[in-house]
Write a protein that binds this DNA or RNA. Structure first.
Lengths: 225, 225
DNA sequence: CACCGATTCAAGCAACCGCTTGAATCATAC
DNA sequence: GTATGATTCAAGCGGTTGCTTGAATCGGTG
């Protein structure tokens, strides 16, 4: 009930976050985390229970506020949009901007966190895959549904597929950020890359679904747009 | 100089390939490979020398013919193309079709191999990253250069960036192929997914670079296209 | 002060890891 | 048949892994 006399849990989370971001999950041993955090060797299992639980805690701390803001922005967009749906650029920015904002707010830790989140897509352990799916399902579904609504003749399934590619590109940018440049607070470069990526993805997302339109909809009186 | 009396090396490669594709590299121990291949425990180090060398051999066996065909197709396209460069769809198909062809030729092993190649992008060990870069540098450079040439006002740097996203999408499709459907030779579905992905990426790739055009080229007399 | 739950500590367990060793076994050449 | 080089075999090496243990130490409470 009282304050812990030391910030052991916090230090473990921070150290694990850095090491996971740099080396990946499998390559990071709990002993390395313990050494980096300068805590006792049993502290991780006392505070978290297992390596898997630590991994979940590390990712959960960062992805939760990002996804919350994503959904809030989307809701705001949908509320102020007309019947034609949300503009695609705004949709993409609502998806990406919370990441940039988090990175900037965290200062020095920004690049580390941003790179960590990039790993949420590529890392292997089944537990993390399940975690990623649990955290992204709602966001992915809401965003791809909004994309399908804003494009005439785009099925929800294909919008979902395309948003997977957007997500893959985002993860690629995030994980290969610190790879190229070593200076941490270089967010101008990151922002430019995301801007170019949005320009690239936008036009593709606005294409109607091809196969379904031509083959399965002979009686379509689409007149809008 | 003579034929080996047993196909130990082959069996090791096949078993390692399957396990790497299913579980990833870090999660696959040499002992698991040994057990799956049913060979002696020292066979891997006798035939390959180390786990790292085995990983390289496993990936090299598959990626080399794919990239060779990619380059051959690209060369053929460039030879028969006019001054306006290669059509973007053909470029994308030249990049992707060798993968599909390999998967079909290998029959039952196709999905395994195809999933393995998807891991070439996401797996962690530095040695594999270096291997992937070594194998992909020429292909990536040649294809993104061809893309830049076929689009008016597209810089080579931005074409390279965009092709990274294409590559990320390809890897995503490959690694999540067997994830969804369990029936191995379901290539119609894979082919459809790639077709939709090409339709999606094509229009984005054909966009000119924005920032450079507007800010840095006041004396540009672009009249072509 | 005595007490108690929460936290820290030093030490170590069993299991697994990649890799090595030295002898046995094989196919071939002479 | 015997020598030779390539391959297979059973066993085990040192090191690392995630995790556990039982006692020591702390802060707050009666």
């Amino acid at each position: 009930m009282s304050l812990p006399r030391s910030n052991t849990k916090q230090r473990i989370l921070d150290s694990a976050e850095s090491l996971f971001a740099q080396q990946g999950l499998a390559a990071t041993s709990l002993r390395a985390v313990i050494a980096a955090a300068d805590v006792n060797s049993a502290a991780i299992h006392y505070h978290f229970g297992s390596k898997e639980a630590l991994v979940e805690a590390v990712f959960e701390r960062r992805i939760e506020p990002v996804n919350r803001e994503r959904l809030a922005r989307l809701q705001h967009l949908e509320a102020s949009a007309g019947d034609s749906g949300v503009a695609m650029v705004e949709l993409l920015e609502a998806f990406i901007h919370p990441l940039l904002k988090l990175g900037q707010e965290l200062g020095d830790r920004g690049p580390v966190v941003v790179r960590l989140l990039g790993r949420l897509r590529s890392e292997e352990p089944d537990s993390l895959i399940a975690l990623a799916q649990a955290h992204m399902r709602e966001v992915h579904g809401r965003f791809s549904r909004a994309a399908a609504q804003s494009v005439e003749g785009l099925t929800q399934e294909e919008a979902s597929e395309r948003f997977e590619y957007v997500h893959a590109a985002v993860a690629w940018i995030l994980t290969h950020l610190a790879h190229a440049s070593e200076k941490p607070p270089e967010y101008v470069e990151l922002q430019d890359r995301f801007q170019r990526m949005i320009n690239f993805m936008e036009v593709g997302l606005q294409q109607p679904s091809r196969i379904r339109m031509e083959n399965l909809r002979p009686n379509d009186n689409g007149a809008a747009r």
